[in-house]
């Protein structure tokens, strides 16, 4: 029997207690969760291990979440990013969408809603990857790239 793929989630937030507790709750819901505490750590993490979904805070010391999202999309556009922020502005929400963010949630978010969004984001990643592979196999590399970057 084929084993179901475990969703790999990376939580990025400078509020250590928040992120550790949230990680524990998500693990109880059978998600594979890693945590980092700022944008720089997130970028170096994804150079080593590629998560399926990143849950990203906006206001962190050092790199702002929007900058981190921009870099993630440059490095690995297939990774889906959910913004989870205390009080993001309308401008932040629009910017995140423009950069290919999957969704924009406000803290404190309901755990069931967050899990549902993570699963939706994962499903979208798989679907886009499969479609892009099909196009790549047909030699349509530009189309494949556009699908991954959500530019189609």
């Amino acid at each position: 029997m084929k084993k179901k793929k475990e969703v790999k989630v990376l939580l990025v937030d400078d509020e250590v207690e928040f992120v550790d507790t949230l990680a524990q709750r998500l693990r109880m819901r059978e998600l594979h969760v890693d945590t980092v505490y700022d944008g720089e750590q997130a970028l170096s993490f994804i150079k080593r291990i590629e998560p399926d979904v990143i849950v990203l805070d906006l206001k962190m010391p050092g790199l702002h979440g929007i900058e981190v999202l921009r870099e993630i999309k440059k490095m690995s556009p297939q990774i889906q990013v959910i913004i989870l922020t205390g009080h993001g502005t309308e401008k932040d929400s629009e910017e995140a969408k423009k950069l290919g963010g999957f969704d924009f949630l406000r803290k404190p978010a309901d755990i069931d809603l967050l899990v549902a969004k993570i699963k939706e984001a994962f499903a979208e990643k798989i679907e886009r990857t499969m479609t892009a592979i099909a196009f790549a196999e047909e030699g349509e590399l530009d189309t494949a790239e556009k699908i991954i970057k959500k530019e189609e």
Partner: peptide
């Protein structure tokens, strides 16, 4: 106001997750 409410909300989020973990 905006900085202070952001800070308050962070603490609320921690309490909410802790209460949620207790429920779990």
């Amino acid at each position: 106001l905006s900085v202070f409410t952001h800070e308050l909300n962070n603490h609320l989020a921690i309490i909410k997750e802790s209460a949620g973990l207790m429920e779990d």
